[in-house]
Design a protein around this nucleic acid. Sequence first.
DNA 1: CAGCATCCGCTTTGATACTG
DNA 2: CAGTATCAAAGCGGATGCTG
Lengths: 214, 214
Amino acid sequence: MRSYNEYCAIAKALDVVGDRWTLLLVRELALRGRCRYTDLRTGLPGIASNLLADRLRELEQAGVVAREEAPPPIATTLFRLTERGEQLRPVLGALTMWGLPLMTEQAPHDVVRSHWLASALESTITDHRPEEPPITVELRTGDAPIALETAGGGVRATVGPARAPDVTVTGEARAVLGVIFGRLDLDRARAQGVSCSGDVALLERLSGAAVPGL
Amino acid sequence: MRSYNEYCAIAKALDVVGDRWTLLLVRELALRGRCRYTDLRTGLPGIASNLLADRLRELEQAGVVAREEAPPPIATTLFRLTERGEQLRPVLGALTMWGLPLMTEQAPHDVVRSHWLASALESTITDHRPEEPPITVELRTGDAPIALETAGGGVRATVGPARAPDVTVTGEARAVLGVIFGRLDLDRARAQGVSCSGDVALLERLSGAAVPGL
DNA sequence: CAGCATCCGCTTTGATACTG
DNA sequence: CAGTATCAAAGCGGATGCTG
């Protein structure tokens, strides 16, 4: 990216991470840890291969990303965030909170990856009754199931099947999030193709009320 | 901007504010409040006029910026952030913190605007001895003086001359910030053209130690 | 002068194909 | 798997011109 040539902290930051795709690449490494080039490609649907290579080079040069040669028998290149790269988490967090209200619209061509949803859920869902025994919810949407476990007044969201879910919610991402955030009641959700199993009443404990408009 | 077509809060946010110049335009409105088109142009040195008009239209459509017709005798168009636009402040804040270490390099062509510096100073400077009487420092750098006043363990930074400064620091932005952040001692600073007047010892009370590498 | 719109050369991006 | 190479299309930068 061409520098803004401004002596301003925001402009200097954007000189490094303001290019198209750059912050999404950082997101992938922040959410998934060490990644291979191919993992990054699938986590950034639509990116041109030359652009991914360019961005990785630029971020490496800026000290945000480090490249490691994995030893045999893996014998592949791995990319990870440096300490400086990890410090971008608050930026990703702030963008996540601001972008959440926009998730009420799911455009027809939108790709869904469960680890994106998991991250958003973890930073916004609250458990209204933390004193009661913890519950586990499995969301079947996106490209893999998401396990939600209440913990300390919030939830922990991990990609992968839950062990013994109290409730399971299956359907399109927008509708499933609508149910979890409390924006969509169950009747309406069912009309949008959502199906649930287990103790549906437990879902009342969760909601994303902290986010206005969600 | 072309949409990323990802059902992800960060991607949705960047669909709106990820374009070149967009976040800097939001920064100007956040730091200066209501602005005329011309004010924005001078606050975004180097932006092409058509791009500024495009960005303003896009942000207006996205509900981030609102346009107001000022009544006579002013009779001009004013732009301001909407409530939704104000909610971008945490994003700007996170970018500011991340970008601060990059301000140790001031490129030769970098434009300096005092309100950018004031914002960065206010979010990072701490007062080590808040129990002592408040002090006032005037920084003469950038395009206008900056008044720093200790308050509640931090500082309030405003653009404009200080009323009765205890200390005055004059010089190039990078060096003046170096002195205030405690990265540069006074001898070195003087060698870089910094001049001070008043009770220089008071500067010891301030520093930006919270920012690593600064 | 304030608030744009138009034009044009250049750079960046997107899509696809190809390679060690 | 981890990239390069190529080329068309889109976006940007800079200059200029237009309108109230």
